[in-house]
Write a protein that binds this DNA or RNA. Structure first.
Length: 682
RNA sequence: GGCGUGGUAGCUCAGCUGGUUAGAGCGCAUGAUUCAUAAUCAUGAGGUCGACAGUUCAAUCCUGUCUCACGCUACCA
C-alpha cells in the first residue's frame, strides 16, 4: 500500500543489515540491501532531509570462531581482515554510509551491555537452565558447531552439532552419534547451564496490533512472513550463549557467557549512531524520526519481530516505520553461494571493472529482486550498459554537448522563443520528478530508475523531433532554444540520476561545470544560465565488449568445474574398527512388502520389510528419491539389530542400508542374485 | 508436511477495491535519420495472464484443487 508520508518526519534513521564479517560482499548483498538503501538515502539528502545512513560489520557469533580456529588465528584477526575488505569495497562502490562501524568496538560493547542490563533490571527476561554439551577438558560449554560426530542420517563422520554438510540436514547436537568436542577431541558430557530468554510470546498481542493492523503497507512478503510467525505462536528466544567471543553477559554468575549474536547485532545500529553523533537519541527516541531497516528476506523475523520486541521491552526507543526486505538475487541461474564460490565479489568487480561502479549499480537496481528472486547474468549486465546507459543516457548527453560545441563554442545558448514543445517538456519534467518521488518513497527503486531514464529518453526524442543539425542552416534562433532546453535536461539529469548512478552524475556536473542542484528546485528553476561555458564533452559510459563478459563467465565456469571436483571427492576412510565391532552388526537381506509416505514429513517413508526373521516396520528417509510404488518389491539390506527408535510416532526396527552418490542422492544396496530373505550380509 | 511469497510477451517487470483492444523497458522486424559511442526516432510482430474446476451477466484480478520456484519451519535409524 503506497503512501507519501515523507513530510511527516523531521529526520530519518536508515539502517542496512550488518554484513557478517566472515567473508567479502557480493552482488546479492548489494542488490538486496545496500544499493536500495543507498538510493533511498541519497534521495533524501538531495531533498535536504536530515538523514543518517548506518552500516557496520557483524563480528560476533560462532562461525567466526570456527573460521579462526581452522586458520589458526584469533577471531579478531578474522574480523579485522573482512571488516577491512568490506569497508573498503563499500567506500569504493559509493555506498554513502554516514558511518560504517563494527560490533567489536568499545562503544558497541557498552551499548549492548547496557541494553541487556536495562532489560534484565526490568525483569524482561526469563531465566532457564538447560542441559548442554560441555567439554570437561577445556572447561567450556560447546556451541553446536563445536561438536562433530556421525550424522544419524547419512553416516557422514564429520557432521556438526547443528547441521550435516554432507547431506544438508539440520541436526540437534544430541542427535549425533559419537559426539566429539572439536576443542579437545574428548567426548563431551551433558551439563546444566543457565540462560536468559526473551519471552516473545508476551509480545504477541502487541506485535499483532502493531504489524498486522498498523502496518498493512509493508511489502507483502514481509507482512505475510510476520503474520505467519505471529499466527504460529511465538516462543521465548535465548539471548545468551556459552561462548568466549562476544559481548559478555553483564550480570553476576554469567562468566563464560556472551550475548547471542542476533541480540547483539541489531543493537549495533544504535552503537554506530552513538559513535556518529552525540545527538544519537534524536535518531532513536524521537517520535518525529522515521526508522527504516533495509534487509534481505532471511532477516525478516529478526527485524520485524525480535528487534522491535527488544526495543519495546526497553521502552524508550522508536520502532521501525518500515522494513523493506528484498528477495534473493541468483547468479547465472544458480543460487549465490559463498562456499561454492558462486558469486560476483564486489572487491573483485572493482578491480575487473575500474570506474564502472555505476554500471553495476544500474544493473542491480534495474534488475533488483524486489518482488521475487531474480537472476543476474553477465549478458544482461552488458546489454544494460550498452543499450541503456551508453545508448540512451550517455548518447543523449553527448549529442547535446557536441552540438553546442559545434554551433555555439560550448556556451549555453540563450532561450529565445518557447513553443508548445518546450512547455510540454517542462510539464513532463515535473511529472517525472513526481513519479520518482512516489516510487522511491514507496521503496520501488526499479520503477524509479526506469522513470529517471525517461528523462534521457525525452531528450533524445526532443532532438530527433526538432533536428537542430538541419535547422541551423535556416533558423539559428530556434536552434538556440532547442540546445538550451537539451542542456537543461542534461543538467537536470545530474540530480534525477544522482541517487542511482552518483559517479556518473558527478562526472556530468564537471562536464557541464555546475554545482549540485537541489531536488526540490526541479520544475521551478533550471540549473544552467545562458552564456555559461561548458567544459569539453567526454563520454559518460563506454561500451563493454564481449571479451570482458566472456572472461567473467569463464571465471564462473571455472568455479563450477572446481566445485564438481570437490563434490566428487570420496569421503575419507573412517578410523579402524575391530572385527568384533563389525560382527556386532546383524545385516540381513530383505524385501520391501509395503511402503507409504509418513504424513507431514518430506523425507520419511514407512516400510514393511520381510527380513526372513520377521516382517517388521522400518522408517527410512528415502521419500525424496523414491516413490512408495516403485519401492515395493525391492530387495534391500537391513541392519536388523539396531535398537528400535520412535520417529514421528512410528517405531522403527532397524535401518535400510543406502548408498549415497556425490550429489547426495540415495540408492538401495541390493543383492545381485535372488538370495533368500534373512540371508546374512557379512 | 505446515506456513509465507511469487509464476503475466524471448528477457526484466506494471496491472488499485473483477468489466482495459492486457501494458512498459530491453531484445526482434520494417521504415526514417545522421548531431551522436552503428548510438537515435517511428511503426510493427510477439501473450488461451502456471493448470483445472467453481462463483459471476462478466475473472489475469474472487474461491477451491493441483503444479513449479524461493524462503521460514518440522522431520531426517
Amino acid at each position: 500500500m503506497a503512501t507519501t508520508s515523507i513530510d511527516k518526519f523531521k529526520r530519518y534513521t536508515v539502517t542496512s543489515a550488518l554484513p557478517y564479517a566472515n567473508g567479502p560482499i557480493h552482488i546479492g548483498h548489494l542488490a538486496g540491501v545496500y544499493v536500495p538503501a543507498d538510493i533511498y538515502c541519497r534521495y533524501l539528502r538531495l531533498k535536504g532531509k536530515d538523514v543518517i545512513f548506518i552500516g557496520g560489520s557483524d563480528e560476533h557469533g560462532v562461525p567466526i570462531t570456527i573460521k579462526a580456529r581452522k586458520e589458526g588465528v584469533s577471531p579478531q584477526d578474522i574480523v579485522d581482515r573482512y571488516h577491512g575488505i568490506i569497508k573498503k569495497s563499500f567506500e569504493e562502490f559509493g555506498i554513502s554510509f554516514d558511518i560504517y562501524s563494527r560490533t567489536t568496538n568499545k562503544t558497541h560493547f557498552d551499548t549492548a551491555s547496557d541494553f541487556f542490563k536495562k532489560l534484565y533490571d526490568k525483569g524482561a527476561f526469563i531465566e532457564k537452565a538447560t542441559a548442554q554439551y560441555y567439554d570437561d577438558e577445556v572447561k567450556q560449554f560447546l556451541a553446536d558447531r563445536y561438536i562433530t560426530g556421525t550424522c544419524p542420517h547419512c553416516g557422514n563422520d564429520g557432521a556438526y552439532g547443528d547441521q550435516c554438510e554432507k547431506c544438508g540436514t539440520s541436526l540437534n547436537a544430541t542427535d549425533l552419534i559419537n559426539p566429539k568436542s572439536t576443542l579437545s577431541g574428548s567426548k563431551p558430557i551433558m551439563k546444566e547451564t543457565k540462560h536468559w530468554f526473551l519471552p516473545l510470546d508476551k509480545y504477541e498481542s502487541w506485535l499483532r496490533k502493531w504489524i498486522l493492523e498498523e502496518h498493512k503497507e509493508w511489502k507483502t512478503n514481509v507482512y505475510g512472513q510476520c503474520k505467519s510467525w505471529i499466527d504460529q505462536g511465538l516462543q521465548p528466544r535465548a539471548v545468551s550463549r556459552d561462548l568466549d567471543w562476544g559481548v559478555p553477559v553483564p550480570v553476576e554468575g554469567a562468566e563464560g557467557k556472551v550475548l547471542y549474536v542476533w541480540f547483539d547485532a541489531p543493537i549495533g545500529y544504535i552503537s554506530a549512531t552513538k559513535e556518529l553523533t552525540k545527538d544519537w537519541e534524536l535518531y532513536w527516541k524521537d517520535s518525529e524520526t522515521k526508522l527504516v531497516h533495509f534487509i534481505g528476506k532471511d532477516n525478516i523475523v529478526f527485524h520485524c519481530i525480535v528487534f522491535p520486541s527488544m526495543l519495546k521491552a526497553e521502552g524508550s526507543f522508536i520502532l521501525p516505520e518500515n522494513v523493506p526486505a528484498n528477495e534473493f538475487l541468483n547468479l547465472e541461474g544458480d543460487k549465490i553461494s559463498t562456499s561454492r564460490n558462486w558469486a560476483v565479489w564486489l572487491h573483485e568487480y572493482l578491480i575487473d571493472f575500474p570506474g564502472k561502479q555505476d554500471v553495476l549499480r544500474y544493473t542491480l537496481t534495474a534488475n533488483a529482486p524486489e518482488t521475487k528472486d531474480n537472476d543476474f547474468t553477465w549478458a544482461d549486465f552488458q546489454a544494460r550498459n550498452n543499450n541503456e546507459l551508453v545508448a540512451i543516457f550517455g548518447n543523449f548527453v553527448n549529442r547535446a554537448m557536441v552540438l553546442t560545441h559545434k554551433f555555439f563554442e560550448g556556451k549555453v545558448p540563450k532561450l529565445t522563443e518557447i513553443t508548445d514543445y518546450e512547455k510540454q517538456i517542462q510539464e513532463d519534467i515535473v511529472k517525472i520528478k513526481n513519479n520518482i518521488e512516489y516510487s522511491i518513497e514507496n521503496y520501488r527503486f526499479r520503477e524509479a530508475l526506469k522513470e529517471a531514464m525517461d528523462l534521457a529518453r525525452l531528450g533524445n526524442k526532443y532532438l530527433a523531433d526538432t533536428e537542430p543539425w538541419k535547422l541551423i542552416k535556416t533558423d539559428e534562433a530556434r536552434v538556440k532554444t532547442i540546445l538550451h532546453m537539451s542542456l537543461q535536461i542534461a543538467a537536470l539529469c545530474t540530480t534525477i540520476m544522482e541517487p542511482f548512478i552518483p559517479f556518473t552524475t558527478e562526472k556530468l556536473r564537471n562536464m557541464l561545470g555546475i554545482e549540485k542542484f537541489a531536488w526540490d528546485k526541479i520544475g521551478t528553476e533550471m540549473p544552467l544560465v545562458a552564456g555559461h561555458q561548458l567544459n569539453q564533452a567526454e563520454l559518460l559510459f563506454e561500451k563493454i565488449e564481449d571479451d570482458a563478459i566472456t572472461a567473467q563467465v569463464e571465471k564462473l565456469m571455472k568455479s563450477k568445474a572446481e566445485n564438481l571436483v570437490v563434490a566428487s571427492v570420496v569421503v575419507p576412510q573412517k578410523p579402524d574398527i575391530n572385527f568384533d565391532d563389525f560382527t556386532k552388526m546383524d545385516i540381513r537381506l530383505g524385501t520391501i512388502l509395503s511402503a507409504e509416505k509418513v504424513a507431514k514429513t518430506k523425507k520419511l517413508m514407512k516400510l514393511t520389510v520381510d527380513t526372513g526373521i520377521d516382517k517388521r516396520t522400518v522408517v527410512s528417509g528415502i521419500a525424496e528419491y523414491y516413490t512408495p510404488e516403485e519401492v515395493i518389491g525391492k530387495r534391500v539390506s537391513i541392519i536388523a539389530n539396531l535398537a528400535p527408535r520412535e520417529i514421528k510416532g512410528i517405531v522403527s526396527h532397524g535401518m535400510i542400508l543406502m548408498a549415497e552418490n556425490a550429489d547426495g542422492t540415495l540408492c538401495f544396496v541390493s543383492p545381485e542374485k535372488e538370495f533368500i530373505n534373512g540371508g546374512i550380509v557379512k
